[in-house]
Design a protein around this nucleic acid. Structure first.
Lengths: 143, 143
DNA sequence: ATTTGTGCAAATCGTTTGCATCTGA
DNA sequence: TCAGATGCAAACGATTTGCACAAAT
């Protein structure tokens, strides 16, 4: 009986999720997943997650963080948010929703509730199909 | 009399536009502006514009292309479109409109007409004001 | 034992910058 | 003249990759 599937509130779930996604639940993947999902919805960059991991005594290399984030994204556990141009954010909220982007601070936050709705979704060009609609509301500190 | 302001259909306009924007109409700026605006609305990357310039016998350095694109953007002659994450596109259409992003091809095209309308624009977070709303409809080749 | 993941450092890619040299007004 | 522009090459920051080593099944 090697199935040491302890009953830590998160550990177990995460392990299963990873397994289901076809990813071996390695130390670093489990730890990163816990960091990602234990604090509600987040929009995090690879670099920041790496720092958090190191701070949490989970030494992972930056390369592994990148790998992991991409694997999670492919597995549908994360959503890549391309907003800024020079940095990639990963969103732990995979459901359909949109974002505020705070200029200056370079922060991304979810638009709460059903705040936005596209009026009319345009038809895709000939031979194309819509994959997703992203709405980014850019805001800045009011002065 | 050095004011050789010829009456080339574009040359003149461009020169004036630049002057109005407070930019000296230098050889390369005028050429780049012509490349940008002589073909209708475009979504172009620095690299591509650079190639076009070189191809058009207007040797400009890539650095100058970047500088110029940013100056034009500040002057309101261009609009930066952050869609892709790893590349910046500059849109010659400065009016309010949205985009299709063709995955795989990494191409950006305008959404024609009044195809999209945000249903309800959400209120900005406390102390923030909305700068702009960007809608990107990601499409892929239908199979 | 095999397969898959990880870490490191080097490589890449797009973009920016420093600085000496030109150019337009 | 002389501030402002340009070109080049080096600097940069984010991300990726190659490969030897380690861990999971």
């Amino acid at each position: 009986m090697t199935t040491h599937t302890a009953m830590e509130p998160n550990g177990k779930d995460v392990t299963n999720i990873l397994r289901t996604a076809g990813l071996r639940p390695t130390r670093q993947r489990v730890s990163l997943a816990e960091l990602l999902y234990s604090k509600g919805d987040r929009h995090i960059s690879a670099e920041l997650l790496h720092e958090e991991a190191v701070a949490a005594d989970v030494p992972v290399s930056l390369a592994t963080v990148y790998n992991t984030l991409h694997q999670f994204t492919e597995a549908g556990l994360l959503r890549e948010v391309a907003i800024d141009g020079n940095k990639t954010y990963f969103d732990t909220n995979v459901s359909d929703h949109h974002h505020f982007f705070i200029e200056g601070e370079n922060r991304v936050i979810d638009i709460p509730g059903e705040g936005v709705g596209i009026g009319a979704i345009p038809e895709a060009p000939e031979g194309m199909e819509i994959v997703r609609v992203d709405v980014v509301v850019r805001v800045r500190e009011k002065r």
